[in-house]
Simulated assay, not measured.
Amino acid sequence: MTDEPRMSAQEMIDRLAPALSVRTRIRAVAALLAGLAGTVFVVSLWWSEPGPLPGRTQLAFALFTVFSVAWAGYGGWLLTRRVPLFATEQVIAAWIALIASVVTTGLVAVIAGQNGTGLLPALAIGSLFVAAALVLALRAHTRRAALLRRMRKLTGEEEA
């Protein structure tokens, strides 16, 4: 017998897995930079427009600003994590993408319907984006659930 202290399964998992992989850090930096760049671009374009803009144009600028800030916030949040995330970051990114695609599709469909410029193409293209985001969200939730099941099994919280 050795006098070394015994490590729990959770401590072993924490020591074996780095908090964030290089790939995850690169994705986080990309989301942060893209979000910040998008925010600066949209806000400066919005502020530089002459005269009062129509309400729906103001709404579009506001929504694109919110989406950009959400991606910047996501990237910043991800970079500050020092614990295993168990695919939480993928779930959050998928939900941001799903919400953005649904709202954008709705806005484009309303504008196309009001202008009479082709509601069907707007809905068809928007639906493709919504479907892709939905698939990513379902995949992220499934992956997270599998990782959490594996963690519970390794830590003894779940009977084998």
Rank of each mutant, 00 (worst) to 15 (best):
D3A: 11
P5A: 13
R6C: 02
R6F: 06
M7F: 13
A9Q: 11
A9Y: 05
E11G: 10
M12F: 09
M12Q: 14
D14E: 15
L16W: 12
P18L: 12
A19G: 13
V22D: 02
T24L: 15
T24C: 09
T24V: 15
I26R: 08
R27I: 01
R27A: 06
A30R: 09
L33D: 07
L36Y: 08
L36H: 05
G38A: 04
V40C: 10
V40L: 15
V40Q: 05
V42L: 10
V42N: 12
W46K: 06
W47H: 12
S48W: 04
P50K: 12
P52C: 00
P52K: 10
L53T: 10
P54G: 08
P54F: 03
G55I: 06
R56V: 10
R56Q: 14
T57M: 15
A60Y: 11
A62H: 01
A62E: 03
T65E: 06
V66S: 07
V66E: 09
F67H: 09
W71M: 07
A72N: 05
Y74S: 04
G75I: 04
G76E: 03
W77M: 00
L78K: 06
R81I: 01
R82A: 10
P84G: 12
P84L: 13
P84Q: 14
P84T: 08
L85W: 01
L85F: 00
A87N: 14
A87G: 01
T88A: 13
T88Q: 12
T88L: 15
E89S: 08
I92N: 02
A94F: 01
A94D: 09
I96Q: 06
A97M: 10
A97E: 11
V102G: 05
T105M: 09
G106V: 08
L107M: 15
L107V: 11
V108D: 13
V110H: 02
I111M: 10
A112N: 02
Q114L: 15
N115I: 01
N115W: 00
T117H: 10
T117L: 08
G118M: 03
L120M: 11
P121Y: 02
A122I: 01
A122R: 06
A124E: 06
F129I: 00
A132E: 13
A133H: 08
V135D: 05
V135M: 11
R139F: 06
A140K: 08
T142Y: 02
R144V: 03
A145C: 00
L147R: 08
R149Q: 08
R150N: 11
R150S: 13
R150P: 00
R150Q: 15
M151R: 15
R152L: 04
L154C: 04
L154S: 03
E157L: 07
